[in-house]
């Protein structure tokens, strides 16, 4: 579970760019929570703070009960992160990419290899397991990035714009994957500016704009609050405009 309390972050020499302002919310286990907001809303910064990559200026965040600042390395053992730029090594094969991270997580060899095979089968990567990542399509890259993020069986999974650049089939595979992880009791948090994705997948939605939380709740709660008929209309209504959002 993710617990965020009054998180703040500003950038720049005089802290003039307020990326995240006083954000508070919870993402429970066994649920998919979505961060929806236009580009520049602070989603990536927020995720990076939860991923222990960036230190907050104020407030606190706990992932799996551990503080992201005080226990950062312990937290890293328990989270899997899929960044916006997947960040694979083009000269290494899919298997080698995942193996590298498995080793960094301290997985012993035999366990690691078994785990990689397991993941690749589940994600449909077996055919390209030993091909260099340089030639992969966006969908294949996404799958390898997911495998890499899951190799150490983390309880919490963070994804930044996971459907970016994916075709329809890959998006479907991704959705199935996330649902399976949810069924296993994982805590999933993903950011998106695509309303449809958030609407289709999320049990709980956090709407962000200009670094602030606009609304938090389940789909039903948000629709009721906005007084609209559909979720996407609710988003637009709550945000005040549809600028920066994609259908």
């Amino acid at each position: 579970m993710i617990e965020v309390d009054g998180l703040r972050k500003a950038f720049g020499p005089r802290r003039e760019v307020q990326a995240v302002r006083d954000v508070t919310f919870e993402a429970p286990d066994g649920e998919i929570t979505g961060l929806l907001g236009p580009n520049g809303a602070g989603k990536t910064t927020l995720l990076r703070m939860l991923a222990t990559l960036v230190v907050p200026d104020a407030g606190s965040a706990r992932v799996g009960g551990l503080d992201v600042v005080a226990d950062r390395y312990e937290v890293r053992h328990r989270i899997g992160v899929v960044s916006d730029a997947r960040g694979l090594y083009p000269r290494l094969t899919a298997r080698e990419n995942v193996r590298y991270y498995g080793r960094l997580h301290g997985l012993p060899r035999r366990t690691l290899e078994a785990r990689i095979d397991e993941l690749f089968t589940a994600l449909g990567l077996s055919a390209i397991a030993d091909r260099r990542a340089a030639g992969f399509s966006q969908g294949e890259r996404m799958k390898v990035a997911i495998a890499r993020a899951l190799v150490h069986d983390p309880d919490t999974i963070l994804l930044d714009e996971p459907t970016n650049g994916l075709d329809v089939m890959s998006v479907r595979t991704l959705r199935e994957e996330l649902r399976t992880l949810r069924a296993h009791g994982k805590c999933l948090l993903f950011s998106s500016h695509v309303m449809q994705e958030v609407a289709a997948l999320c049990d709980r939605i956090v709407i962000l704009s200009s670094g602030r939380i606009v609304a938090v709740g389940t789909a039903t709660e948000l629709i009721a609050r906005a007084g609209t008929s559909g979720l996407e209309d609710a988003f637009v209504a709550l945000l005040g405009s549809d600028e920066g959002l994609a259908a």
């Binding site: 000269r91 080793r103 960094l104 366990t111 260099r132 069986d153 399976t180 992880l181 994982k186």
Partner: peptide, 30 residues
Amino acid sequence: MSGATTLPERGSAVARTLAILRKELLDTLR
């Protein structure tokens, strides 16, 4: 998909450093 595997955790600083060394050498020779 995660199965019931309780994965033994951690690893040492040396192990991680070696993992990085091996990967960089592999990547270079590739």
